[in-house]
Design a protein around this nucleic acid. Sequence first.
DNA 1: CTCGGTGCAAATCTTTTGCAGTCAA
DNA 2: TTGACTGCAAAAGATTTGCACCGAG
Lengths: 132, 132
Amino acid sequence: MKDAIDEIISALQDRGFRITKARKMLIKHLAQKDQPLSIQALCALLKDVDEASVYRSVRMLHEEGFLEEIAIAHEAPRYALSHGHHHHHAVCTSCGVMEHIACSGEKLPTLKAFQTIKSHEVTFYGLCKKCA
Amino acid sequence: MKDAIDEIISALQDRGFRITKARKMLIKHLAQKDQPLSIQALCALLKDVDEASVYRSVRMLHEEGFLEEIAIAHEAPRYALSHGHHHHHAVCTSCGVMEHIACSGEKLPTLKAFQTIKSHEVTFYGLCKKCA
DNA sequence: CTCGGTGCAAATCTTTTGCAGTCAA
DNA sequence: TTGACTGCAAAAGATTTGCACCGAG
């Protein structure tokens, strides 16, 4: 986990970004929480960092590809450190906890933390015939 | 299509809601557009209805089950008249047009209006072991 | 030392709410 | 007639932006 943090930090430095308290804290919290967090949740965790800086840092890290943005029905988007490999999610409608589901094509995915699934959503993103 | 509108209107009346210009226009636009629309898009179409009323009407129709709310990555949710049967969506990342995809279990779904699919997202909603 | 990033405050945008007047039933 | 809705205005919340100062490199 420490490795993941260091990797992102060196990558940022390589690209000319400075390593500030706000950015270091943001990455650290996302790495150790192991749960995608909304901007508001991040602001609550980073009490001593200005909200504007949280927004700016999240946007930058997302644009640079270090953060994955996860859209959830009826909720603000949540952010997590990018994993690289393709995957999906399960969300608990009661406590909000999220589980990462591998989409490897090799074996059937398993849900370790879930008891029951009530609904699912599938969305495709692509080009319609007019725009292709 | 006219039938769908009339059906919703009688159902609303049966439940004690009044049929106002705002509500009638909202339902009419959603029925004839045949595309899910965001609240902002609806406000633009319903220029002579106050934004606050659009928000109130959309919420009421959604709570009463007449509107389906569709979450799209990096976008405001869109609303469409409920179809009843379970289905999914494809979104064009260029023009935003959406296609409804049946999820019947009988035959493979087909995408009529789409040329290429770039990505997909699957999300499960349910109860985790702690909350079950 | 430099200038990219931060904090703070103000601006902007989105959504909600209170209230008095209006109109569907 | 009556109270469920609406429009309007203000409030609340979320996000962005301008600017002077600060600190990472």
